[in-house]
Design a protein around this nucleic acid. Structure first.
Lengths: 100, 100
DNA sequence: AAGGCTTACGCCAACCGTAACTATT
DNA sequence: AATAGTTACGGTTGGCGTAAGCCTT
């Protein structure tokens, strides 16, 4: 499981559409389809019900969505924490931030 | 940024050693080195001070460690949520978990 | 000189986009 | 028949392991 998978999953869940998610993510529909499939395989359960009317979350999908969002938010917190400590563009911090 | 990066970062931080982290992660030292470098580049700041005595966290590294752990825990929560809803080995849930 | 982090190199696996296919409305 | 998701295919990218390099102790 990677953040990329979760990002894609959340996009599809919110758009309730693979194609709209692809547009939002600026990628091809096939990539979205494959990424969701990979995640479903890894988690051992379908996340979306594709057949009947349109795309909707399965029970597993609904149970997973909140934690997926929380994970993405946590990842953003990592970026923020780093940025807060080292707000420079790059080089000076990369060479040495050192300690207090 | 991917979960793989964070996993490696946390391992190095806990072992305070790239080589021991590599052993723990069952991978080569060079892979650990490259992964940490990639994360540092993306976050825009060094996470470890490698030169003086041994390997130790920089200020940025310390600020980032907790959120990195939280992200990994959140990712585990995703797995747990899915497993809880769909506790089967695979196929039945993959075909259709459906809703209530 | 030995241990440990980094860089170079070659290989392999994974991802992506295009395009063809299938199914549903 | 048109829209939407999946599968196939070829190309590119990225990560890993081995091995050589470099620096510190």
């Amino acid at each position: 499981m990677e953040l990329r998978h979760l990002h894609t999953f959340v996009a599809v869940a919110e758009e309730r559409s693979f194609s709209r998610a692809a547009t939002r993510l600026r990628t091809a529909q096939s990539a979205v389809s494959r990424t969701v499939q990979a995640l479903e395989r890894e988690l051992g359960g379908a996340l979306f019900e594709r057949s009947r009317h349109h795309v909707e979350l399965t029970k597993t999908g609904r149970a997973t969505l909140d934690t997926a969002r929380a994970t993405l938010a946590a990842a953003e917190a990592v970026r923020d924490a780093a940025r807060r400590t080292c707000p420079l563009p790059a080089d000076e911090c990369l060479v040495e931030t050192s300690d207090a």
